[in-house]
Structure formats: structure tokens, C-alpha cells
């Protein structure tokens, strides 16, 4: 087991290295000039040139790359070209809202989606199944921002139940955190619920056809127990996988919901940085999100062996 984890960790190295090279090159080939963005409307070309030099943007690419990699090895993410603040500080400020919202979304989604999927599979080809499936297809088909606007319109403006926007850290005021986080989480969850419910249903359908389920039923085990103890346990691997691969989807949702609900998270940080060509921030963010993605999927692979005893490494 430990050997397996180590092996998988080693395999992460080339992936992250490639991401680093790719992102670096992508940005340096991008038109757009952080110096011009920094200097504003009235700068002259000569002034821009001076700023570029002081930012190190006039150094040869290889030198810039070397500097960056050197910093990375020292655990230094660099300094934002625009804000002149260490990137690690910016990430530190902005990552918690995203993590909290994402975690809450995942928990909410699993709580909603798994029962939905189980019921759909259990009541296969009945109205319940069709309802769940329709919802899950619908969840994929409406853009996240439209869902967000509809929620705001209904719950915040018409009913006045919840705040329109913003974020309060749970450590500061948990009640406020919840009231502000509910709508963004629900918005994000629509797509995630759709994804997980679908996968749960498909996976359960497969398992429910297996012999041991039939045996359990024949032995007179209660239906709830059959479903949630025997079947779901065995259907769990694909469900876990989809939660892992769905992380990418979650990120794209996060980027949008953070804009709609004005949450100061890393999604907005990254988009703003891309639009402002703040190279160190973009590099750090893409590297970081990639690493998180790889790490989550690694964790899930490890979790397999715990959940499904058939898988052994």
C-alpha cells in the first residue's frame, strides 16, 4: 500500500513538470504586457520600457524560467507583478472561501445525489427514475450563471430569504457563512448532483443485476439494507471516481459562481490574473489547481482499496 502511494506520488512529478513548462510558455507567448496594465492610460512607450525592465520581463525566456523554477524549489511562488504582494499571501487570503464553498458543495451534492441515484436505479423505469434522470440531464444543460441569477432573483430578491452576495469566513460567524454560502453551493451543486446522480444510478443498475444482490434478497434481507449496504458499497468506486474527475467541473463552476455571488476565492483571482497578465499569479494558480486535481485523484485511488476489497495493489 505504502509502496503504491509512493509510486503514484513519483508519477506526479513528470505531470507537474509538464504543466509548469506548458503554462510558462503559454503565458510568454501571450500578447499583452503586464507593464502596460500596471502603468495605466497615460504611460509613454519609454516609461513602459523602464517598468518592463524593472519587472524582469526583458530577461531572456530561459533566465525567467530558471528564476521561477529556482523560486519554486525554495517554496517561493514569486511576487505579483501588479499588486507587488507575494503570491503565496494572495493565495492564502483567497483559497479558503473556495475550499469552504467547494467542500460544502461536495457534501451537499453527495447527500442529495446518492439517494437520488439509488432510488432511480431501484425504481428503474418508473416516474421516479425519469424524474431523477430528467433533473440530471437538465443540470448539465443550463449554464451555471443562469442558474445563479435565477436563485438570486427568487431567494434573495423576491423572497428576501438569503443575502445576494458576499462571503463571511465560517470562523468569524458561522451563521452568516451559511446564509451567504447556501446559494452559491446550490448553484454549483446542480451540475454536481446531476453528475453524481447519473453515475450512482448507472453503477447501481449494474450492481443490482449481480448474483449476490439476488442472493441477499432471496435470503430476505430488507430492501433498504440491500440497497445501501450491499449494492451501494459495491457501486461506490465509480461514484468516487466521478467525484474526483468532477473536480475539474467544480473548478469551472467555481470560477463562474465566484463572479456571480462575489466570493473572493481563487477562481476569480485566477481569471483576473489571466486578464491582467499577472504571470506569477497565473503560473502559481494553474500549478496549484493542477496539483490539487492530481492529489485528489490519488486520494481517491487509495480510497478504492479501502472501500472495495476486491481492488488490491
Amino acid at each position: 500500500m505504502l509502496g503504491y502511494i509512493l509510486k503514484r506520488l513519483l508519477a506526479v512529478v513528470p505531470v507537474i513538470t509538464f504543466v509548469a513548462i506548458f503554462v510558462f510558455l503559454l503565458l510568454r507567448l501571450t500578447p499583452g504586457d503586464p507593464a502596460a496594465i500596471l502603468a495605466g492610460d497615460a504611460a509613454t512607450p519609454a516609461q513602459l520600457e523602464k517598468i518592463r525592465t524593472s519587472l524582469g520581463l526583458n530577461d531572456p525566456l530561459l533566465v525567467q524560467f530558471g528564476t521561477w523554477i529556482g523560486q519554486l524549489f525554495r517554496g517561493d511562488l514569486g511576487i505579483s507583478l501588479i499588486s507587488n504582494i507575494p503570491v503565496s499571501d494572495m493565495v492564502g487570503q483567497r483559497i479558503w472561501p473556495t475550499i469552504n464553498i467547494a467542500l460544502m458543495t461536495i457534501i451537499l451534492s453527495v447527500l442529495l445525489a446518492v439517494p437520488m441515484g439509488v432510488i432511480a436505479a431501484w425504481k428503474h423505469r418508473t416516474w421516479a427514475d425519469y424524474a431523477v434522470m430528467s433533473f440530471s440531464v437538465l443540470g448539465f444543460s443550463v449554464p451555471v450563471f443562469v442558474i445563479g441569477y435565477i436563485f438570486i432573483q427568487v431567494f434573495s430578491i423576491e423572497l428576501r430569504w438569503l443575502p445576494v452576495q458576499g462571503y463571511t469566513p465560517p470562523t468569524e460567524d458561522f451563521g452568516k457563512f451559511l446564509s451567504k454560502a447556501i446559494l452559491p453551493c446550490l448553484t454549483l451543486a446542480t451540475i454536481y448532483v446531476a453528475l453524481i446522480a447519473r453515475m450512482t444510478r448507472a453503477s447501481m443498475l449494474e450492481v443490482l443485476g449481480e448474483d449476490y444482490v439476488r442472493t441477499a434478497r432471496a435470503k430476505g434481507v430488507s430492501e433498504t439494507l440491500v440497497l445501501f449496504r450491499h449494492a451501494l458499497r459495491n457501486a461506490a468506486v465509480p461514484i468516487l471516481t466521478i467525484i474526483g474527475t468532477g473536480f475539474a467541473l467544480l473548478i469551472s463552476g467555481v470560477v463562474v459562481t465566484e463572479s456571480v455571488f462575489n466570493i473572493p476565492g481563487i477562481g476569480r483571482l485566477t481569471v483576473d490574473a489571466i486578464l491582467a497578465r499577472d504571470y506569477p499569479v497565473i503560473q502559481a494558480m494553474i500549478l496549484l489547481t493542477s496539483a490539487i486535481y492530481v492529489f485528489i485523484n490519488l486520494m481517491i485511488d487509495v480510497a478504492y482499496s479501502i472501500i472495495d476489497p476486491r481492488i488490491r495493489y
Binding site: Y149, I152, I157, P163, V164, Q165, G166, S259, F261, N262
Partner: peptide, 18 residues
């Protein structure tokens, strides 16, 4: 001072007193 990426959101926040 806060920034909101979306004027619609800002207006709603103003209307709701946030």
C-alpha cells in the same frame, strides 16, 4: 471598498442593504 464583478450583483446588494 469592495469590487463586484457584476453590476447586477452590486445593484441587488445595494437594494438589499448589504
Amino acid at each position: 471598498w469592495v469590487t463586484m464583478p457584476d453590476s447586477q450583483t452590486s445593484i441587488n446588494a445595494l437594494l438589499s442593504g448589504e
